Amino acid sequence: MSAPLDVPGVRLRAGDLIALRPVALAAVGEPALSDLPGGFITRKRGHGQEVADIREYMPGDDLRHLDRGSTARTARPHVRQFQEERDRVTLLIADFRPSMLWGLTRAFRSVSAAEALTLLGWRVIEEGGRVGLLALSAGEPVIIPARGRVRGMLDVIGALARAHDAALETALAGDLDDPPLDDGLSRVERIAPRGAELVIASGFENPGNSLEDRLNALGRTRAPRLLLISETAATRLPRGSYPIRLPDGTRTRVAGASGGAAPEVRIAGHVALELDAGAAVEETARHLAAAFPKDREP
Protein backbone atom coordinates (compact mmCIF):
# COMPACT_ATOMS: atom_id res chain seq x y z
CA MET A 1 0.00 0.00 0.00
CA SER A 2 1.40 3.40 -0.98
CA ALA A 3 2.26 5.60 2.01
CA PRO A 4 -0.10 8.51 1.07
CA LEU A 5 -3.03 6.06 1.07
CA ASP A 6 -2.09 4.26 4.28
CA VAL A 7 -4.09 6.59 6.52
CA PRO A 8 -7.42 6.26 8.38
CA GLY A 9 -10.40 7.04 6.22
CA VAL A 10 -8.53 6.13 3.04
CA ARG A 11 -7.27 2.65 3.71
CA LEU A 12 -9.80 0.08 4.90
CA ARG A 13 -8.42 -1.88 7.85
CA ALA A 14 -9.91 -5.20 8.90
CA GLY A 15 -9.26 -4.44 12.57
CA ASP A 16 -11.34 -1.26 12.36
CA LEU A 17 -14.27 -3.19 10.87
CA ILE A 18 -14.02 -5.90 13.52
CA ALA A 19 -14.17 -3.18 16.18
CA LEU A 20 -17.56 -2.04 14.80
CA ARG A 21 -19.33 -5.04 16.33
CA PRO A 22 -20.15 -3.40 19.69
CA VAL A 23 -21.12 -0.18 17.88
CA ALA A 24 -23.61 -2.09 15.72
CA LEU A 25 -25.15 -3.94 18.66
CA ALA A 26 -25.32 -0.87 20.91
CA ALA A 27 -27.32 1.02 18.29
CA VAL A 28 -30.09 -1.59 18.13
CA GLY A 29 -33.25 -0.35 19.81
CA GLU A 30 -36.95 -0.65 19.27
CA PRO A 31 -37.76 2.30 16.97
CA ALA A 32 -41.43 2.85 16.27
CA LEU A 33 -40.83 3.90 12.69
CA SER A 34 -38.29 3.11 10.02
CA ASP A 35 -36.01 5.65 8.38
CA LEU A 36 -37.33 4.31 5.08
CA PRO A 37 -40.92 5.18 4.11
CA GLY A 38 -43.36 2.33 4.80
CA GLY A 39 -41.11 0.46 7.23
CA PHE A 40 -40.90 -3.31 7.19
CA ILE A 41 -43.39 -6.03 8.01
CA THR A 42 -43.04 -7.39 11.53
CA ARG A 43 -42.08 -10.96 12.34
CA LYS A 44 -44.53 -13.61 11.28
CA ARG A 45 -45.94 -16.14 13.69
CA GLY A 46 -46.02 -19.75 12.66
CA HIS A 47 -45.35 -23.26 13.91
CA GLY A 48 -41.58 -23.39 13.97
CA GLN A 49 -39.57 -24.44 17.01
CA GLU A 50 -38.56 -20.97 18.26
CA VAL A 51 -40.90 -19.54 20.91
CA ALA A 52 -42.28 -16.11 20.00
CA ASP A 53 -44.57 -15.54 23.00
CA ILE A 54 -46.31 -17.17 25.97
CA ARG A 55 -49.89 -16.13 26.75
CA GLU A 56 -52.94 -17.35 28.60
CA TYR A 57 -54.87 -20.24 27.10
CA MET A 58 -57.93 -19.37 25.02
CA PRO A 59 -60.61 -21.80 23.87
CA GLY A 60 -59.47 -23.44 20.64
CA ASP A 61 -55.73 -23.28 21.39
CA ASP A 62 -53.73 -26.45 20.78
CA LEU A 63 -53.18 -28.13 24.15
CA ARG A 64 -49.95 -29.63 22.80
CA HIS A 65 -48.48 -26.10 23.12
CA LEU A 66 -49.25 -25.85 26.83
CA ASP A 67 -46.37 -24.23 28.73
CA ARG A 68 -46.07 -26.15 31.97
CA GLY A 69 -43.79 -23.69 33.74
CA SER A 70 -46.03 -20.66 33.24
CA THR A 71 -49.12 -22.72 34.02
CA ALA A 72 -47.63 -23.93 37.30
CA ARG A 73 -46.44 -20.47 38.38
CA THR A 74 -49.74 -18.69 37.67
CA ALA A 75 -52.19 -21.52 38.32
CA ARG A 76 -53.77 -20.60 34.97
CA PRO A 77 -53.14 -22.45 31.71
CA HIS A 78 -50.67 -20.76 29.35
CA VAL A 79 -49.69 -21.77 25.83
CA ARG A 80 -46.63 -21.08 23.73
CA GLN A 81 -46.75 -19.30 20.37
CA PHE A 82 -44.05 -20.14 17.85
CA GLN A 83 -42.51 -17.99 15.14
CA GLU A 84 -41.90 -19.14 11.61
CA GLU A 85 -38.38 -20.44 11.02
CA ARG A 86 -36.55 -18.93 8.08
CA ASP A 87 -32.99 -19.05 6.82
CA ARG A 88 -32.06 -15.36 6.69
CA VAL A 89 -29.34 -14.68 4.15
CA THR A 90 -27.99 -11.17 3.55
CA LEU A 91 -25.68 -10.39 0.64
CA LEU A 92 -23.62 -7.25 1.25
CA ILE A 93 -22.76 -5.49 -2.02
CA ALA A 94 -19.91 -2.97 -1.71
CA ASP A 95 -19.21 -0.47 -4.49
CA PHE A 96 -15.44 0.15 -4.66
CA ARG A 97 -15.46 1.52 -8.21
CA PRO A 98 -13.21 4.57 -8.83
CA SER A 99 -16.04 7.09 -8.31
CA MET A 100 -16.28 5.91 -4.68
CA LEU A 101 -12.58 6.45 -3.90
CA TRP A 102 -12.76 10.00 -2.60
CA GLY A 103 -14.08 12.01 0.32
CA LEU A 104 -14.08 15.56 1.65
CA THR A 105 -14.13 15.05 5.42
CA ARG A 106 -13.81 11.93 7.56
CA ALA A 107 -13.45 9.10 5.08
CA PHE A 108 -13.62 8.01 1.46
CA ARG A 109 -17.13 7.08 0.38
CA SER A 110 -15.87 3.56 -0.28
CA VAL A 111 -14.69 3.27 3.34
CA SER A 112 -18.03 4.58 4.60
CA ALA A 113 -19.85 2.05 2.41
CA ALA A 114 -17.79 -0.79 3.90
CA GLU A 115 -18.46 0.48 7.43
CA ALA A 116 -22.21 0.64 6.85
CA LEU A 117 -22.29 -2.87 5.41
CA THR A 118 -20.17 -4.19 8.28
CA LEU A 119 -22.51 -2.64 10.85
CA LEU A 120 -25.43 -4.44 9.22
CA GLY A 121 -23.45 -7.65 8.83
CA TRP A 122 -22.64 -7.86 12.53
CA ARG A 123 -26.32 -7.46 13.35
CA VAL A 124 -27.37 -10.17 10.90
CA ILE A 125 -24.85 -12.58 12.41
CA GLU A 126 -26.00 -11.71 15.93
CA GLU A 127 -29.60 -12.46 14.89
CA GLY A 128 -28.62 -15.90 13.61
CA GLY A 129 -28.45 -15.15 9.88
CA ARG A 130 -25.80 -15.70 7.26
CA VAL A 131 -23.79 -13.03 5.46
CA GLY A 132 -22.06 -13.02 2.06
CA LEU A 133 -20.22 -10.39 0.04
CA LEU A 134 -20.00 -9.04 -3.49
CA ALA A 135 -17.37 -6.28 -3.80
CA LEU A 136 -17.40 -4.43 -7.12
CA SER A 137 -14.49 -2.41 -8.51
CA ALA A 138 -12.78 -1.57 -11.79
CA GLY A 139 -11.12 -5.00 -11.61
CA GLU A 140 -12.47 -8.45 -10.88
CA PRO A 141 -15.24 -8.64 -8.27
CA VAL A 142 -14.59 -10.28 -4.91
CA ILE A 143 -17.20 -12.83 -3.85
CA ILE A 144 -17.65 -14.52 -0.46
CA PRO A 145 -20.46 -17.09 -0.16
CA ALA A 146 -22.95 -16.57 2.65
CA ARG A 147 -21.86 -18.10 5.96
CA GLY A 148 -23.06 -17.78 9.52
CA ARG A 149 -21.48 -17.12 12.90
CA VAL A 150 -18.55 -14.84 13.67
CA ARG A 151 -16.28 -16.84 11.39
CA GLY A 152 -18.46 -15.98 8.41
CA MET A 153 -18.41 -12.27 9.24
CA LEU A 154 -14.64 -12.30 9.66
CA ASP A 155 -14.34 -13.82 6.17
CA VAL A 156 -16.45 -10.95 4.80
CA ILE A 157 -14.38 -8.33 6.62
CA GLY A 158 -11.09 -9.76 5.37
CA ALA A 159 -12.42 -9.77 1.82
CA LEU A 160 -13.65 -6.17 2.14
CA ALA A 161 -10.19 -5.00 3.18
CA ARG A 162 -8.45 -6.92 0.39
CA ALA A 163 -10.91 -5.73 -2.25
CA HIS A 164 -10.54 -2.11 -1.16
CA ASP A 165 -6.72 -2.30 -1.25
CA ALA A 166 -6.93 -3.74 -4.76
CA ALA A 167 -9.34 -0.99 -5.85
CA LEU A 168 -6.96 1.72 -4.59
CA GLU A 169 -4.02 0.17 -6.39
CA THR A 170 -6.02 -0.12 -9.61
CA ALA A 171 -6.94 3.57 -9.38
CA LEU A 172 -3.29 4.49 -8.74
CA ALA A 173 -2.39 2.61 -11.91
CA GLY A 174 -4.64 4.99 -13.85
CA ASP A 175 -7.80 2.92 -14.31
CA LEU A 176 -10.40 5.52 -13.28
CA ASP A 177 -13.40 4.49 -15.38
CA ASP A 178 -16.44 3.05 -13.59
CA PRO A 179 -17.82 -0.19 -15.02
CA PRO A 180 -21.65 0.03 -15.20
CA LEU A 181 -23.23 -0.90 -11.89
CA ASP A 182 -25.96 -2.97 -13.53
CA ASP A 183 -23.32 -5.25 -15.07
CA GLY A 184 -21.83 -5.92 -11.64
CA LEU A 185 -25.23 -6.83 -10.24
CA SER A 186 -25.72 -9.45 -12.95
CA ARG A 187 -23.85 -11.92 -10.70
CA VAL A 188 -26.25 -11.57 -7.78
CA GLU A 189 -28.71 -14.27 -8.84
CA ARG A 190 -25.88 -16.83 -8.88
CA ILE A 191 -24.64 -15.81 -5.43
CA ALA A 192 -27.74 -15.04 -3.34
CA PRO A 193 -30.52 -17.63 -2.93
CA ARG A 194 -34.15 -16.78 -3.49
CA GLY A 195 -35.54 -14.89 -0.52
CA ALA A 196 -32.20 -13.29 0.36
CA GLU A 197 -31.80 -9.67 1.39
CA LEU A 198 -29.50 -7.61 -0.86
CA VAL A 199 -27.90 -4.50 0.67
CA ILE A 200 -26.20 -2.31 -1.95
CA ALA A 201 -23.93 0.48 -0.65
CA SER A 202 -22.97 2.78 -3.51
CA GLY A 203 -22.93 6.32 -4.84
CA PHE A 204 -24.81 4.93 -7.87
CA GLU A 205 -22.68 6.79 -10.42
CA ASN A 206 -22.69 5.22 -13.90
CA PRO A 207 -25.66 2.97 -13.10
CA GLY A 208 -25.84 1.56 -16.62
CA ASN A 209 -28.85 1.48 -18.91
CA SER A 210 -30.75 -1.25 -17.10
CA LEU A 211 -30.24 -0.71 -13.36
CA GLU A 212 -33.95 -0.21 -12.71
CA ASP A 213 -34.84 -3.34 -14.68
CA ARG A 214 -32.13 -5.28 -12.84
CA LEU A 215 -33.39 -4.19 -9.42
CA ASN A 216 -36.99 -4.90 -10.36
CA ALA A 217 -36.05 -8.40 -11.52
CA LEU A 218 -34.11 -9.07 -8.33
CA GLY A 219 -36.98 -7.70 -6.26
CA ARG A 220 -39.34 -10.40 -7.53
CA THR A 221 -37.44 -13.14 -5.67
CA ARG A 222 -35.15 -11.22 -3.31
CA ALA A 223 -35.27 -8.01 -1.26
CA PRO A 224 -32.97 -5.22 -2.52
CA ARG A 225 -32.13 -2.46 -0.01
CA LEU A 226 -30.22 0.60 -1.24
CA LEU A 227 -27.75 2.69 0.75
CA LEU A 228 -26.78 5.91 -1.00
CA ILE A 229 -23.33 6.89 0.29
CA SER A 230 -23.04 10.63 -0.21
CA GLU A 231 -20.65 13.38 0.81
CA THR A 232 -23.01 15.98 2.22
CA ALA A 233 -20.20 18.51 2.62
CA ALA A 234 -20.64 19.01 -1.13
CA THR A 235 -24.23 20.17 -0.57
CA ARG A 236 -22.91 23.13 1.39
CA LEU A 237 -20.96 24.41 -1.61
CA PRO A 238 -22.61 26.87 -4.02
CA ARG A 239 -24.19 25.18 -7.00
CA GLY A 240 -21.59 24.22 -9.60
CA SER A 241 -18.88 21.70 -10.46
CA TYR A 242 -15.57 21.90 -8.61
CA PRO A 243 -12.30 20.25 -9.65
CA ILE A 244 -10.33 18.72 -6.76
CA ARG A 245 -6.97 16.98 -6.59
CA LEU A 246 -6.74 13.78 -4.56
CA PRO A 247 -3.71 12.94 -2.37
CA ASP A 248 -2.44 10.52 -5.01
CA GLY A 249 -2.31 13.30 -7.63
CA THR A 250 -5.37 12.27 -9.61
CA ARG A 251 -8.19 14.73 -10.25
CA THR A 252 -11.95 14.44 -10.03
CA ARG A 253 -14.90 16.83 -9.84
CA VAL A 254 -17.42 17.45 -7.06
CA ALA A 255 -20.89 18.80 -7.75
CA GLY A 256 -22.05 21.49 -5.34
CA ALA A 257 -25.69 22.27 -4.67
CA SER A 258 -27.39 24.83 -2.50
CA GLY A 259 -29.72 23.53 0.17
CA GLY A 260 -29.85 20.18 1.94
CA ALA A 261 -30.58 16.72 0.68
CA ALA A 262 -34.15 15.65 -0.03
CA PRO A 263 -35.72 13.66 2.85
CA GLU A 264 -36.62 10.84 0.50
CA VAL A 265 -34.08 9.61 -2.03
CA ARG A 266 -35.03 7.38 -4.94
CA ILE A 267 -32.54 5.43 -7.01
CA ALA A 268 -33.76 3.68 -10.17
CA GLY A 269 -37.32 3.77 -8.86
CA HIS A 270 -36.39 2.36 -5.44
CA VAL A 271 -36.29 4.16 -2.09
CA ALA A 272 -32.76 4.53 -0.71
CA LEU A 273 -31.40 5.41 2.71
CA GLU A 274 -28.88 8.24 2.33
CA LEU A 275 -25.81 8.05 4.57
CA ASP A 276 -23.20 10.75 5.00
CA ALA A 277 -19.64 9.51 4.46
CA GLY A 278 -18.43 12.27 6.78
CA ALA A 279 -20.65 11.27 9.70
CA ALA A 280 -19.33 9.35 12.70
CA VAL A 281 -19.90 5.60 12.57
CA GLU A 282 -22.10 5.82 15.68
CA GLU A 283 -24.48 8.11 13.81
CA THR A 284 -24.50 5.77 10.81
CA ALA A 285 -25.25 2.85 13.14
CA ARG A 286 -28.27 4.67 14.57
CA HIS A 287 -29.68 5.39 11.11
CA LEU A 288 -29.22 1.75 10.10
CA ALA A 289 -30.82 0.47 13.30
CA ALA A 290 -33.94 2.51 12.52
CA ALA A 291 -34.05 1.60 8.83
CA PHE A 292 -33.31 -2.11 9.36
CA PRO A 293 -35.32 -3.22 12.41
CA LYS A 294 -34.59 -6.61 13.90
CA ASP A 295 -37.92 -8.11 12.90
CA ARG A 296 -37.89 -6.96 9.29
CA GLU A 297 -38.89 -9.38 6.60
CA PRO A 298 -36.03 -10.48 4.29
Score class of each variant (00 low, 15 high):
13 R>H: 14
85 E>G: 04
124 V>F: 03
17 L>K: 03
127 E>G: 11
157 I>Y: 00
87 D>N: 11
253 R>H: 10
194 R>D: 12
21 R>C: 07
168 L>A: 08
4 P>H: 13
217 A>Y: 10
286 R>E: 10
287 H>W: 13
100 M>D: 03
57 Y>I: 13
159 A>C: 02
9 G>K: 06
213 D>T: 09
184 G>R: 00
277 A>R: 03
30 E>L: 10
117 L>T: 01
13 R>W: 11
247 P>Q: 11
19 A>Y: 08
234 A>I: 11
55 R>L: 14
159 A>S: 13
232 T>L: 13
65 H>R: 14
246 L>R: 08
7 V>G: 06
53 D>E: 15
165 D>S: 14
14 A>N: 07
232 T>G: 05
173 A>L: 09
159 A>N: 01
272 A>P: 07
197 E>W: 00
54 I>M: 08
159 A>M: 01
140 E>R: 12
52 A>L: 03
179 P>T: 10
248 D>L: 08
162 R>Q: 11
259 G>M: 07
116 A>H: 00
55 R>N: 10
16 D>E: 15
265 V>F: 06
216 N>M: 11
79 V>H: 03
68 R>P: 04
285 A>E: 09
252 T>P: 05
8 P>N: 09
283 E>Y: 05
117 L>W: 01
73 R>S: 13
72 A>C: 10
11 R>D: 04
17 L>V: 10
20 L>I: 03
193 P>W: 07
59 P>N: 12
251 R>E: 15
154 L>R: 00
222 R>E: 09
264 E>K: 08
230 S>N: 13
84 E>Y: 00
171 A>I: 02
155 D>H: 00
33 L>M: 07
145 P>V: 01
39 G>V: 09
131 V>T: 13
160 L>S: 02
62 D>V: 11
159 A>R: 00
150 V>R: 12
256 G>V: 07
53 D>H: 10
50 E>L: 02
185 L>K: 03
22 P>I: 08
123 R>C: 03
212 E>V: 11
208 G>Q: 15
42 T>A: 15
41 I>K: 01
163 A>F: 00
258 S>C: 05
265 V>P: 04
227 L>G: 03
206 N>I: 06
88 R>G: 01
154 L>F: 01
273 L>W: 06
196 A>C: 06
210 S>V: 06
50 E>W: 00
220 R>D: 09
78 H>T: 12
133 L>N: 00
